[in-house]
Design a protein around this nucleic acid. Structure first.
Length: 553
RNA sequence: GGGCAAUUAGCUCAGUUGGAUAGAGCGUUGGCCUCCGGAGCCAAAGGCCACAAGUUCGAAUCUUGUAUUGCCCGCCA
């Protein structure tokens, strides 16, 4: 059993014997300072009012009952400290069993029950298929994909989705851009209209059409040509996006077409439903949604006086569709410049009969692309920007993903290409991977010497009794808590910080404690098993980030 | 003008239901290769958690105000 689980269970028993309910704000956590033991709990302060006694007195009586019930001497000490904290220290034997727990669970170690099978959808990237993915999309892709992995690990039933904006004006502009480029290739002296996409990739697409259809193009009508251009451009760009994401180890279960919503009449249906409920109304020739009643600054237009639908209208229909598919929680990952869009979307969700909390929006801040400290200018309009595939090709998928996940989503990220290639602590992906490779190297060497830890009796683990051993074990025991916390707070970056801690502990352990040359045979094998458990946790953590754990570097 | 977010060591950043003496990396300074991978380790210095009030046993964390910075504010997508 894990330490926190054990402690909580023991406390619940003691409290119920005292006739007190478990206080909601009770916290059990490893204290900042090791001298306060392995775990600290504030339960005496939390329940002192209900018992009508001083926190320290409550703590003392809880302590007594805990020790009474501890027949197997799992606790090596329980202390009352400060204002009434209960600090417990576990026996070495308890910690040594963690090796077995990790090795038995193997790739499932870290799994927890937080989600209880709740259905969650994570929708991310969803870039318009009008051009290749750039580095900003890459961050959203890394965050979304990693979040899905974490939520799965935390016991949620997760589905990932990409929403394809294939119905709006952007597609017309894309078609027009390609069409114009094609005209130019055919020798016509036309200018590219102002709002068109100017990237060179559009010229490539036009050239493909030229190669495919040849002289047949000259006999086609303008409508036919535009349609061919639009179709070809969208299909090819979407294929490119799918390929980029695959290379980036990002997976979407569902690719959902906006056009399919519109064609099925679901957008119109949603609008009439809102109108029927009295939430939408006509004004100045347009149809408005009364988002103000849900706290938005102002009401929003659903259908323009021109008759065109706004994006907001199809977004509402889209989210309605999501909930009708049975998701308990919907997570949307957006660029932070869309933060003003959150209140109206939350309003829409409530109008659909759900709670505002049934939609979580993660805002991903902009990425500053740098090279050796100097900013690289990015602009889709001029067509000069760094694509995700360029960045991956230069620094590698592992470094890119780790870098994207190295900050809270909602804070700006400086992505320095030179730094991402560097092999130093500035670039922790190598630090963490190196820790794993070191263990693998030891294992290989051990195998040469005929040491096979997997066959060793668990009793040998009693040799793991130094402070360094216990520190290591305690840290491994925190992995499931880290997963749970990352899932609960949708804080994807927490995994990377934890892994840096584990790697740091491993490097220290490795430097200060001889493993293969420890002398005593059972000590050698028990240390090998400890390191095997460390490697397992590193692998599991890196897997959550979508980063590889190489055996050799 | 209104709204959202941010402000923590020289730099880049962690710190989430309020907990004990505020942490990490980089950089700086000084050490560690007879030794399983030095892409490593150890140690030191470095802080008024932007500022000011408030809430309470206790505040980097919650409330209010101020300052600075970024972003958003269309019948755009």
């Amino acid at each position: 059993m894990r330490a926190r689980t054990h402690f909580q269970k023991a406390l619940v028993e003691v409290l119920s014997s005292m006739g007190v309910d478990w206080p909601e704000k009770t916290v059990i956590e490893p204290p900042k300072d090791k001298k306060f033991g392995d775990l600290a709990c504030n339960i005496a302060m939390m329940s002192s009012k209900a018992l009508g006694k001083k926190p320290r007195d409550v703590a003392e009586s809880i302590r007594g009952k805990l020790l009474e019930g501890d027949a197997d001497k799992i606790f090596s000490s329980i202390e009352v400290a400060g204002p009434g904290f209960l600090n417990v220290t576990y026996s070495p034997a308890f910690w040594q069993r963690q090796v077995q727990i990790v090795l038995d669970a193997a790739e499932d170690f870290g799994q927890c029950e937080l989600g209880k099978g709740r259905k969650v959808q994570v929708e991310f990237v969803s870039a318009n298929p009008t051009g290749p993915l750039h580095i900003g999309h890459g961050r959203g892709a890394a965050v979304g994909d990693s979040l899905a992995r974490i939520l799965r690990k935390a016991g949620f039933d997760v589905e990932t989705e990409y929403y394809i904006n294939d119905a709006g004006r952007q597609m017309l502009i894309l078609g027009m851009s390609t069409y114009t480029r094609l005209q130019q290739l055919l020798g016509s002296d036309v200018e590219l209209p102002e709002d068109c996409y100017k990237g060179d990739y559009i010229i490539d697409l036009a050239r493909e059409i030229q190669d495919e259809h040849g002289d047949a193009l000259r006999s086609m009508s303008e409508e036919e040509l535009e349609s061919i251009c639009r179709q070809h451009a969208m299909t090819r760009i979407l294929d490119g996006i799918k390929l980029d994401l695959k290379t980036f180890r990002v997976h979407h279960d569902i690719w959902f077409s906006e056009k399919s919503l519109v064609d099925a009449g679901k957008v119109e249906k949603t609008l009439s439903d809102l109108t029927a409920k009295g939430l939408a109304f006509e004004k100045d020739g347009a149809l408005w949604f009364d988002t103000e009643r849900y706290g938005d600054d102002k009401n929003r237009v659903l259908r323009k006086s021109s008759g065109d639908l706004t994006y907001f209208a199809s977004d509402i229909a889209y989210h309605d569709d999501k909930y009708k598919r049975g998701f308990d929680l919907v997570v949307d990952i957006w660029g932070a410049d869309h933060h003003g869009y959150v209140p109206r979307m939350k309003a829409a969700v409530q109008a659909l009969g759900k709670n505002a909390d049934d939609l979580e929006v993660i805002l991903v801040q902009l990425v500053n692309l740098l090279r050796a400290g100097k900013q690289i200018a990015m602009s889709t309009r001029s067509g000069e920007f760094d694509t995700l595939s360029d960045v991956c090709a230069e620094v590698g998928v592992d470094a890119a993903r780790f870098m994207f996940l190295s900050r809270k989503s909602d804070s700006h990220l400086d992505f320095d290409l030179e730094l991402a290639k560097e092999r130093s602590m500035d670039n922790p992906v190598y630090y963490v991977q190196y820790a794993h490779a070191r263990i693998c190297s030891l294992k290989a060497k051990a195998a040469e010497q005929g040491i096979k830890p997997s066959q060793v009796d668990m009793a040998a683990l009693t040799g793991l009794d130094t402070e360094a051993d216990i520190d290591m074990l305690r840290l491994l025991d925190q992995f499931p808590d880290t997963v749970e916390s990352a899932a609960k707070n949708l804080g994807v970056h927490q995994i990377g910080y934890y892994l840096r801690d584990v790697a740091s502990s491993l490097h220290r352990y490795y430097t200060l404690n001889p493993v293969l040359t420890a002398g005593d045979a059972s000590l050698v094998t028990s240390r090998m098993m400890l390191l095997e458990a460390v490697a397992q946790v590193l692998r599991n953590g890196l897997e959550l980030m979508g980063v590889s754990a190489p055996d050799r570097m």
